[in-house]
Amino acid sequence: MSGAEKIRVRVSEITLINALVTRFRFERCDGADLPTFSGGAHTVVEMQDGGVTRLNPYSLMSDPYDQRSYTISVRRDDTGRGGSLFMHQQVKVGDEMTISYPVNLFSLDLRARKHLFLAGGIGITPFMAQIQQLERFGTQWELHYACRNKGLGSYADELTSRHPNQTHVYFDDQSQAINLPHLLEGQPLGTHVYVCGPKGMINWVRDTAQGLGWPQDNIHYEEFLAPQPGKPFEVKLAVSNKTIQVGEHESLLEAMEREGVDAPYLCRGGACGQCETAVIGYDGKFIHRDHWLEPQEHESGKKIMPCVSRFEGKTLVLDR
């Protein structure tokens, strides 16, 4: 079986946070406790959307030590593949769903003297759990949170009122911006910086910190990529002895699963490396979108991450 262990849950609360974001609370169907987790962990939510099974990862944002319920926040993406729309439009309180055990690909470095969090938009969610974890132990942290405007600043008010000294919110529409070089230069030795948000923000933080001489190991980021649509293509799976079609709006991983091929995965967003698959032969070009493989591996034509990457061309044969 692929992916992390599964848990059957019931949706116990749905809360509109703002025009784009809705929060969902899950409790176990069997009434037992949920596993504790570490701040930064995500869960993969299974959605039965008509005939399609969607598996989307969402950061857990509740207190990691609250074993009665988990919460996630889902940002509606009107042009996406439909997972967030399904959550917003189809899921009702009382529905039963399947989620995965927590998996953490964005863990705190517990050696840090101080944790500096930089969030952009919905990227706030993993920090919600991490902040609650750190508060329990009185560890130093500081949050800088950039949002489009006041109306879309999910949890900004809550964080500001609970942690007025640690929380700094920036609104784009008021031309407020994080003064990153200044912020990074003022940090004490042993600070770790964590960034979660759009790709541009992640690159900006990584590049600025590295430019200022921050050690690589002190810079942490998480970006889940959603699979992007693309031209349909055909794949031959050598081990399963099947030839399958990957549709415009599904990923290669999803197409394999649809055809009953058991392919490993964890994050489904190009980050964890679990679904790495060897290429046996190809005639065409790869559209690599993961940030797991090294650039030279992308160029080698020997590997592909089927959760987010695609192919255009005549033939592709995979070792799966």
Partner: peptide
């Protein structure tokens, strides 16, 4: 190492 890094909760 690759195997161990991917050992998950509950498994």
């Amino acid at each position: 190492l690759k195997f161990l890094l991917n050992i998950q909760q509950g498994a």
